[in-house]
Computed example of a mutant assay.
Amino acid sequence: MNCFKILPVWLVMPIAGTFAQTIDTTRSETPTLTVSGYVEAYYAHDFTAPKATQERPGFLYNHKRNREVNINLAFIKAAYSNDRVRANLALQAGTYAQYNYAAEQDLVKHIFEANAGVKLSRNHDLWLDAGIFSSHIGFESAISKDCWTLTRSLLAENSPYYLAGAKLTHNTPNGKWTLLGSVLNGWQRIAKLPGYSGPSISTQIQFKPSAKLTLNWSTFIGSDRPDSLKQGRFFNNLYAIINPSSKVGVILGFDIGSDRKPIVDGQRIGSGSYVWYAPVIIARFATAEKSYLAGRIEYYNDKNGVIIGTGSPNGFQTFGYSLNYDYFILPNALFRVEGKVYSSKDAIFETDNGLRKTNTSLTTSLAISF
């Protein structure tokens, strides 16, 4: 889910510091052990929320705490690789882990990534990986510095950030195609949902005809409900990343998912499915060698409350608008500030004087990678 860079070359090079250690020189490729880290501190001020409220709205999981300086995500990662095997272990802390992993067992809440992989072919780039890994669904991740906007889009906040299971990944020799198939424990779940027996399946097809264009289609087939409800889920994530020049880029994203209507007291409550969808467009412009602007317009329609429940007559039907400014203080130190407005069809946002249809916030962050 990492974002595609549009900055000058020196800015888009990996900025996490690494070191290598020779383990066994008899192999065809020298094994490496790489250690890297990331810390993102932030301050979010929600102008709409009641003064006593210390949390942003319930459908947000990043930069969640309100009117206080906090850590969104901090992790330390060790990665081992040689020509046929690879493994990653990253331990995390911060409010992202606090809220996004709330349903997981305490033992795994601090695992950002833990997986092992083996290359199945000497002649082809074909890997089998198993464990806990970052989701391939979507163009955004929890690592803010890798994304075009400081905060995440509505569609990213409400689709998987991480997955647990096993995946098979193949990259073609020309580097233009990536094909992925996976068997998962569920919709962003390390432990299976109680009452759900079957595995879930996810796929990805990504095509990069050139450095100026990336096309992606990812799917999820399974459920996030107990077997007794018989609510199968089919979800699609599509996006295009367009970079016509080194200074300008555009992301076009679209999510659409459906949950079959449930069975209650032995009877299905109706034919068809509950559908939700979310389009987004993000434009980014490099204003100087070390700075850039990004704007976002998005919409999320979940009138049946499948993903975001509101209890309001029209469910969650919300537009979002944001503008952010980013400045690289150093190649591995990024300062960001973003203003954002949500506008909903129903009055769903809490204030000191009841509910209102709009929400306004300002977020700043400082991210350091090493």
Score class of each variant (00 low, 15 high):
220 F>K: 07
272 G>P: 02
231 Q>R: 12
202 S>H: 01
253 G>Y: 04
213 L>G: 07
198 G>S: 15
248 V>W: 10
267 Q>Y: 00
221 I>L: 13
265 D>H: 04
200 S>H: 00
262 P>D: 00
263 I>W: 02
196 Y>H: 13
255 D>T: 07
203 T>H: 04
240 A>I: 06
266 G>Y: 01
260 R>M: 10
214 T>V: 04
210 S>Y: 03
227 D>V: 00
213 L>Q: 10
208 K>V: 09
231 Q>N: 12
202 S>E: 04
257 G>S: 04
211 A>D: 14
209 P>S: 08
214 T>M: 12
250 V>P: 08
224 D>Q: 07
238 L>M: 15
218 S>W: 01
231 Q>W: 02
230 K>H: 07
247 K>L: 10
238 L>H: 06
209 P>H: 06
239 Y>F: 15
214 T>W: 03
258 S>E: 11
222 G>M: 02
203 T>Y: 03
215 L>N: 11
214 T>N: 14
234 F>N: 15
245 S>K: 09
208 K>R: 11
215 L>K: 08
236 N>H: 12
212 K>W: 05
248 V>Q: 14
251 I>Q: 14
224 D>E: 10
222 G>C: 02
244 P>D: 09
217 W>M: 10
217 W>V: 11
216 N>L: 06
209 P>M: 09
242 I>D: 15
213 L>V: 10
236 N>L: 13
249 G>V: 07
209 P>Y: 06
268 R>A: 08
238 L>P: 01
240 A>S: 14
211 A>F: 01
